[in-house]
Structure formats: structure tokens, C-alpha cells
């Protein structure tokens, strides 16, 4: 960095540095006092809130957590819904019986394979 312009710029930078340092030193006592109070307040507040802390959920994760819980609940509700292919309950069978009796269908229609059922029953009973 030997170019005259660059040397001049370096000299200018040094002048600026000295002027700014003087500006810092010239801070009036009232402002220095206020800065000291600000420092003390920051230390007091900071020390109270620092140290071993309880677990805190970062705010970034909060919406994601809410979504995850909502999704889990939805899945749980979906899974616990009664399946249409599940075995009929006692109430459902009773309703079917009433419907059968009320329909007036011929009983023979349901007794077509009586012979087969008799054979099947005797076969299983014979072991």
C-alpha cells in the first residue's frame, strides 16, 4: 500500500480514529452516569434471569408442536371410529332379527341348506 492516495487515505483514517477517540473521551458526566446505571440495571436483570433455567420451548417450535398434537388427535379419532366391517354387536343382531320377522319372508328361503348344516354338525361332532 504505497500509492500516494492510499497513504493519504491511511492518514485520513488515523485522523478520524483520533477524532473519534477524543469524542468518546469527551462524553459528559451526566451521560456517563446514565450509562453506569444502564450497566447496573442490565447486570441485575441479567443475573436474575440467567443461571440454571427451567425447560422452555423455543417459540419457533411452538406452532410445529401445536400442529403435531392436532395431527395426532385427528389420527386417534380416525382410528377409534367404529369400522363398518367390524363384527355386529348384540344390538345390531336384534335389529336384524326384528327386520326378518317383520319382512314376512318364507322361512324355507333360509332353510335351503339345512341338510348341509346337519351334515357339517355331525361331521364336527364325530371329530
Amino acid at each position: 500500500m504505497n500509492h500516494p492516495d492510499e497513504i493519504e487515505l491511511q492518514s485520513f483514517a488515523e485522523d478520524c480514529r483520533q477524532r473519534l477517540a477524543g469524542h468518546v473521551e469527551a462524553l459528559d458526566p451526566a451521560l456517563q452516569t446514565r450509562l453506569a446505571h444502564a450497566r447496573r440495571a442490565a447486570l441485575d436483570q441479567g443475573v436474575q434471569t440467567s443461571g440454571p433455567r427451567a425447560f422452555r420451548v423455543p417459540s419457533v417450535w411452538l406452532p410445529a408442536g401445536v400442529c403435531a398434537v392436532a395431527a395426532s388427535l385427528s389420527i386417534a379419532v380416525w382410528i377409534s371410529r367404529p369400522s363398518p366391517t367390524a363384527a355386529p354387536t348384540a344390538e345390531a343382531v336384534a335389529v336384524e332379527d326384528v327386520e326378518f320377522l317383520a319382512s314376512g319372508e318364507e322361512a324355507d328361503f333360509y332353510a335351503e341348506d339345512t341338510t348341509f348344516y346337519e351334515w357339517a354338525g355331525s361331521a364336527s361332532g364325530a371329530g
Partner: peptide, 10 residues
Amino acid sequence: VQDAMLQLVR
């Protein structure tokens, strides 16, 4: 400045 001090301490 005070806020920066507090953040640093905290």
C-alpha cells in the same frame, strides 16, 4: 446500549 448489555449478560 442497555439492551445489548442485558442480552450479553443474559
